[in-house]
Design a binder for these strands. Structure first.
Lengths: 95, 95
DNA sequence: TAAAGTAGTTTATAATATAAACCAAAATAT
DNA sequence: ATATTTTGGTTTATATTATAAACTACTTTA
């Protein structure tokens, strides 16, 4: 069995959680992601930016009820990267 | 679905590969692990030490045919940690 | 006996993760 | 009305990690 490369963008607990979440819900607000992942806002902000930079998510900023609102949505590149990551990870977990 | 904590000792590509390997072969020499993982010797040396420090592997040093020989063996704590890691990882990969 | 190879370790550096500090505005309490 | 707290973040500083480069110590081969 060969050990496959693990995409360093996804091989991070918080970024993996964010992508995992966005895979299931398609779209989510910053605060929702923060709650689900138990991350600090600062850390989440940084990691969301890296996922955006990588083209794995799309980030939309607007105002909702007077407050800023950041919404994230997974891209097809993000879905692909996640699927490949899971596949490659099998080489480390499998029998 | 809750995102479980991922043991930081195991959530590292190289260390995970080493443990994965040792789960399957029980005991392996440094050079064998190096070949299987395609790691540099320096990096492998450091990561093996961290796994030893964590009590996940046992490291034995001796001389074989005039050359130093480092042999690694997984401990029961290592097996447990790996199993828990895989289990927790499911919360990120699952449907 | 000089050069190249084996089997690593140590150290320096680059990349990452994380929390702390900060910012701007809105809501609330005094 | 104005001080305080809360919301929803971002930026920056720091600690941790991963990695490669340099080094050690010895052996084999030319």
């Amino acid at each position: 069995m060969e050990f496959k490369e693990l995409d360093p963008i996804l091989h991070s607990q918080l970024r993996l959680a964010v992508i995992s979440l966005l895979i299931s819900v398609k779209e989510a607000e910053f605060t929702f992601i923060r709650e689900k992942t138990n991350a600090t806002a600062g850390n989440l902000s940084v990691q969301i930016n890296k996922l955006k930079e990588a083209g794995y998510i799309e980030v939309m900023k607007q105002f909702k009820d007077n407050y800023p609102q950041t919404t994230c949505k997974i891209t097809s590149a993000g879905i692909n990267a996640f699927e490949q990551y899971v596949k490659n990870l099998q080489s480390y977990l499998g029998k």
